[in-house]
Amino acid sequence: MMNKRSEFDVEINDTKGTPFIDNAKISARNVEVFYEKKQAIFNTSIDIGKNQIVAMIGPSGCGKSTFLRCLNRMNDTIQSCQIRGEIKLDNEDIYARQQDPVLLRARVGMVFQKPNPFSKSIYDNVAYGAKLHGLTSNQVELDDLVEKSLMRAGLFNEVKDDLHKPGTGLSGGQQQRLCIARTIAIDPEVILMDEPTSALDPIATAVIEELMIELSKKYTIVIVTHSMQQAARVSQRTAYFHMGHLIEVNDTNTVFTNPEHQLTENYITGRFG
């Protein structure tokens, strides 16, 4: 094993770059994820800064989506999934006993790869979270919240006359913005985005990317993307995953111009991935 080292398994035990920062919104330490016997994430530690956009890149199956789903405990819904280590949101361990996944997910929202509006009206899609959590006390407040959220997701002008038509009838890009609108309607602190534009055309993608930058003024955003250009365009920091290991984290500029790790360089220069 030791004498047959290929260029790919050079020192992947240590994350290169600057995984740790001050004033972190989320800090993950020594996270490991298992599906039954199979290990999907190895000893991963990273800090995610407040009001930043952090992009997670890496080849398919590298564990970036799995890691993302740990951040709002979405992996709880998969029975065979086990998580070790520690993830703190504002210095509270989100996997602690007293921590409630429902409350956590209200604080850490998520947008998925494929737009998944509920088969309800556009209005009800956006109002869903607020109604669940009892965030508004009357119809006027709710109307107001729906309008504001749609506005901030840049969708309101397109749908203001069709609020009671089904959300599934919108175009792909509009559906994705609807999903973003319904996420920000409950005013989370962090928004996780799992390849949010991979099912969209370039124009819709551009609209979403603009929206992300706009939203990062208020929210902390973690985005998983398979597009390095997207990571370069929107994120302040970029993390590179490889086969379940977090290889390198750094300012986006540094990662793309001066990667420390050979694997990162191979990936961003397009030698594989």
Binding site: D90, D100, V102, L103, A106, R107, H133, D187, E189
Partner: peptide, 17 residues
């Protein structure tokens, strides 16, 4: 932490039980 989020958290927490 945003102020509105703090309030929201309280509202949500109260209804959790």
């Amino acid at each position: 932490m945003q102020k509105s989020a703090m309030i929201n958290n309280e509202i949500i927490r109260k209804r959790l039980a």
